[in-house]
């Protein structure tokens, strides 16, 4: 009976039940939907920012406000953490757990470095007079959107480093699976991707 049933399942369409449609288990499906939902939070902020920016004519010129070399450094750092994360995921697939753990740890440390740079940037801008409700360069909303958007991204990076630390410990203790590490990687790359949006839409445009 059960043999027949499993044969039937093998022939059956992926949408027929008993098998996962997109070749992905519930964890992966759930994480992707979480990423979409979380991404839409940033979409909300960025759309609001775009709206605010379109509705005024005195939006500050980004190159006057931000130091582009510094920003480049932040971007390079975050992109590098993406690379080490990918290496960690690949090590997990090869089941080289200590390599994997090391790379996760390195990713987390680079994440912390990014947060440090961001704190530095905030301090610098605050010293220049940027506040939530005022700034010396132009439209008032500029400061508010800057702190909210980069703040929320920083919060995600911070959450990411906590997740990474936990994952590194679990992997070190051989209590992790390749799929688990891959999911940590998905989240981290998502945070990296959000930065690409923020970098272009807020800092460059």
């Amino acid at each position: 009976m059960s043999l027949q049933a499993s044969a039937a399942v093998q022939q059956a369409n992926r949408w027929d039940g008993g098998v996962c449609p997109f070749g992905a288990g519930w964890r992966t499906v759930m994480l992707w939907w979480f990423i979409i939902s979380d991404g839409l939070l940033f979409a909300g902020f960025l759309a609001a920012y775009g709206y605010a920016r379109l509705s005024v004519s005195n939006w500050p010129d980004a190159s006057q406000v931000f130091s582009l070399p510094f920003l480049t450094a932040m971007t390079v750092v975050l992109l590098a953490s993406g690379a080490t994360m990918t290496l960690a995921v690949e090590a997990a697939r090869r089941e080289e757990w200590s390599t994997c753990s090391t790379f996760i740890l390195v990713t987390g440390l680079i994440g912390l470095a990014f947060l440090g740079l961001q704190a530095w940037e905030w301090r610098h801008l605050i010293a220049d007079g940027a506040r939530m409700n005022t700034n010396p360069w132009g439209a008032v909303a500029f400061g508010a959107y800057f702190f909210v958007i980069t703040g929320f991204h920083g919060l995600h990076v911070f959450t990411g480093t906590v997740v990474l630390a936990t994952a590194a410990r679990r992997v070190w203790a051989r209590r992790a699976t390749a799929v688990g590490v891959e999911m940590v990687g998905l989240y981290w790359h998502f945070v990296e991707m959000v930065w690409v949006f923020i970098f272009t839409l807020f800092y460059l445009l």
Partner: peptide, 16 residues
């Protein structure tokens, strides 16, 4: 690039 290579969407099911 990030979604396709790093998040492996290139290798995932097109549905995802």
């Amino acid at each position: 690039l990030i979604a396709g290579n790093s998040m492996r969407l290139r290798h995932a099911h097109p549905g995802i």
